[in-house]
Write a protein that binds this DNA or RNA. Structure first.
Length: 397
DNA sequence: CATGCCGGGTG
DNA sequence: CACCCGGCATG
């Protein structure tokens, strides 16, 4: 792998030697110089007098560091390279990451910020101890395209990107792909009351909830799904709500405080009613836990518990506001939602658009129907649904 | 028992 | 689709 990298680096260097002052070319040169000095380093270590060279270079390593980062000096001392490796190794070990193939010498010390974010997105949060990185951090580069954000981040990262574009390393691609996936998929936010922790790994979030909130790893491995939600990468932190930035909303409190905030994902036909009655996070929770809403062990429907049926129907109503036969359900559901604007167990929000498991009849509504209003003798004045023994359309619950 | 309406049948 | 009705659940 190192040989491939060196070859590619030298090839890129050849193509860039004629124009050292350019913007992107400069970074290529810089990175190639990095590779070159690495080769020098390996050569020097095999030579008997490498100690003198190191001592001679050591006192100006700081200056070289600065010059190198500004792209002026086209080579680095072996010690700085070693420092890179040490620091990268420290970061990697501290992150306790899974064995991601990633050469530390590709990294410049200036790019540790993005490195932190990347690894935190992957596995740092897995430790559960220091996995929190707020969206203030994420808002620096929340875009799915890493090249754009890294352009803004640092020169070193840019060099990294340039190298990546030139080398097409397999492992590097894997890392980049993972980063893209992470940054595009967003993070996972703990919905436990008063927690609001944002982690970037589903496994980490489950572990966090299981250990910190559910009382130990021996707890159910399914229950923690209810206590977190996937949030979009454009979401802001819990401390700085700015609803205009995101359509997947932040904490429940901010949602309930601005209930009629227009969002771009609401169904156009029913947005007014929905946005005023339902907590906004229903949307993201729905998208997160939709897969388990119909699971037989998650939503247990017994024939004598119409409330569970109301729940699933309420979710359906929140999405499409079918105002005919299910409107009774939506009223119940909305009442519950309003009473539980600060949820303690968000799994009650797990909804299913499917009616397959929800064929149990609801309780009789309070509203008088056509039969009661007009009587059987004036059946011709009933609504057609009542005439057909269907759910009344004229007096829906 | 009255009522509401689901599910299914028919044209 | 519209229309109708058996049958069930509920109060």
């Amino acid at each position: 792998m190192a040989a491939v990298k060196s070859q590619a680096g030298l090839g890129a260097m050849h193509s860039a030697t004629g124009r050292k002052k350019g913007g992107l070319v400069r970074h290529c040169v810089q990175e190639n110089a990095d590779v070159q000095t690495h080769r020098q380093n390996s050569i020097l270590q095999s030579s008997p007098d490498h100690g003198e060279v190191w001592s001679a270079n050591s006192e100006r390593s700081n200056t070289q560091f600065f010059l190198h980062s500004s792209g002026v000096l086209p080579y680095r001392s072996p010690e700085s390279v070693e420092m890179d490796e040490i620091m990268a190794a420290m970061v990697l070990t501290s992150l306790a990451s899974r064995p991601v193939i990633q050469s530390p010498k590709e990294r410049d010390p200036l790019s540790y910020g993005p490195l932190d974010m990347e690894c935190g997105g992957g596995e740092l949060s897995d430790s559960g101890s220091s996995g929190y990185w707020s969206w203030e951090h994420g808002s620096v580069s929340p875009a799915p395209s890493p090249s754009i954000t890294e352009t803004d981040s640092s020169l070193g990262q840019l060099a990294d990107e340039g190298l990546h574009m030139e080398l097409e390393l397999g492992a590097r691609d894997e890392t980049e792909t993972r980063r893209c996936k992470i940054s595009s998929r967003g993070a996972y936010k703990c919905l436990w009351p008063g927690c609001g922790k944002v982690l970037t790994s589903r496994v980490a979030m489950k572990r966090h909830i299981r250990i910190l909130h559910l009382g130990g790893p021996e707890q159910s491995h399914r229950e923690e799904d209810f206590y977190y939600t996937e949030v979009s990468s454009v979401e802001e932190g819990p401390m700085s709500p700015s609803p205009s930035l995101s359509f997947t909303n932040g904490p429940w409190s901010s949602c309930s405080s601005t209930p009629s905030q227009p969002t771009s994902r609401e169904a156009p036909s029913s947005s007014s009613t929905l946005s005023q009655s339902a907590p906004c996070s229903v949307w993201q929770i729905h998208t997160e836990h939709l897969y388990q809403a119909c699971a037989p062990d998650e939503v247990t429907i017994s024939p004598d518990s119409p409330s569970s049926c109301d729940w699933t129907s309420a979710g359906l109503q929140l999405r499409s506001q079918i105002s005919m036969s299910r409107s009774r359900s939506v009223s119940v559901g909305e009442q519950w939602l309003q009473l539980n604007s600060v949820p303690t167990r968000s799994h009650t929000m797990s909804v299913s658009p499917s009616r397959g498991q929800c064929s149990i009849r609801k309780g009789r509504g309070e509203a008088k129907k056509c039969r009661k209003v007009y009587g059987v003798e004036r059946r011709d004045q009933w609504c057609t649904a009542c005439c057909w023994k269907k759910a009344c359309q004229r007096f829906p619950d």
